[in-house]
């Protein structure tokens, strides 16, 4: 009888160890899915691990991993939800700061820039080795970059280093960009000049031609006492082409600026080697 008892005790102990080993294996499995960028399955396995894990000390890490998977998969709302869950059970201020920074970075990716800036301004950098002023400036700079505000971004990166690569990039974009107001203004003064300024010469020539034609017809009508005709041609044709001229200049300037920004974003996504949100 005693022998049976010993066997049972040994088996019971072994099964307890086996369960712990199973959970450990599950974690390794989930991590391998995460490392192979199979984020959908990784989330499933992390959730399974969390569901069966009785030890709540693992929850911080699991929630963090789930959040990172969601972030990598572009599910930013879910990522922020799990970052916040991880934050609730963070054991140290260091861990909390780490999560807060991840939430900010996710907000930058989600393009909720005002939210990211508010959180960056609130970030408490006292009593932590993890964060300093340059980190805050770096992510503020990124927030402005993603908000298409290259000038502010340049100012933030300058606080870190006058020759910071992202400051140089932001300055380059600022210099290349066209002034939308200026393009409109010169088109007010001389129709077609806004199009020339933005490099759309054919459109500029047409715009100038139409305005000269209808301007001539309108003025000629008034000069030869055909006031009604002058009013009609002036209000329906000349103003239509005049208004179209500066609207077009504005449109071209915005389109060119978007192209310049998109080229910079492409560089940031594919070639920039520094830390990204």
């Amino acid at each position: 009888m005693n022998k049976i008892l010993y066997i049972l005790i040994i088996l019971f102990g072994a099964s307890c160890i086996n369960q712990a080993q199973n959970l450990e294996r599950q974690k390794v499995f989930a991590d391998s899915l995460f490392n192979s960028e199979n984020y959908f399955d990784a989330i499933t396995e992390y959730k399974r691990l969390q569901f069966f894990s009785e030890a709540s000390e693992n929850y911080y890490e699991i929630n963090m991993q789930i959040a990172l998977c969601y972030k990598a998969g572009g599910k930013y709302d879910d990522a922020i939800k799990y970052f916040n869950l991880a934050k609730l059970i963070a054991k140290s201020s260091e861990e909390s700061r780490k999560i807060e920074l991840q939430i900010i970075r996710t907000n930058i990716l989600r393009r909720t820039i005002p939210e990211a800036l508010v959180l960056l301004n609130k970030l408490d950098i006292t009593n932590t080795n993890y964060l300093d002023f340059s980190t805050i400036s770096y992510w503020k700079g990124w927030a402005y970059l993603m908000n298409d505000d290259w000038e502010q971004a340049s100012n933030e990166f300058e606080k870190i280093d006058k020759f910071h690569p992202l400051k140089i990039l932001a300055d380059g974009v600022c210099n290349k960009k066209y002034s939308v107001g200026f393009a409109k203004f010169i088109s007010f003064v001389l129709p077609g000049s806004g199009q020339f300024y933005t490099g759309n010469y054919v459109s500029g020539v047409f715009s100038l031609g139409w305005n000269i034609l209808w301007g001539y017809v309108t003025i000629n009508a008034f000069m030869t006492d055909r006031a009604l005709e002058g009013i009609l041609v002036g209000s329906l044709l000349w103003t239509r082409f005049y208004r179209g001229n500066f609207q077009n200049a504005e449109k071209f300037a915005i389109k060119n600026n978007n192209e310049i920004s998109n080229n910079a974003y492409e560089y940031l996504a594919n070639k920039y080697l520094g830390e990204k949100p």
Binding site: L11, S15, N18, Q19, N22, Q26, R48, F52
Partner: peptide, 15 residues
């Protein structure tokens, strides 16, 4: 008691 616990543990360990 031990056998029932053992069975439960075995079931639980296979997630």
């Amino acid at each position: 008691v031990a056998i029932s616990q053992l069975l439960a543990q075995t079931e639980k360990s296979n997630i």
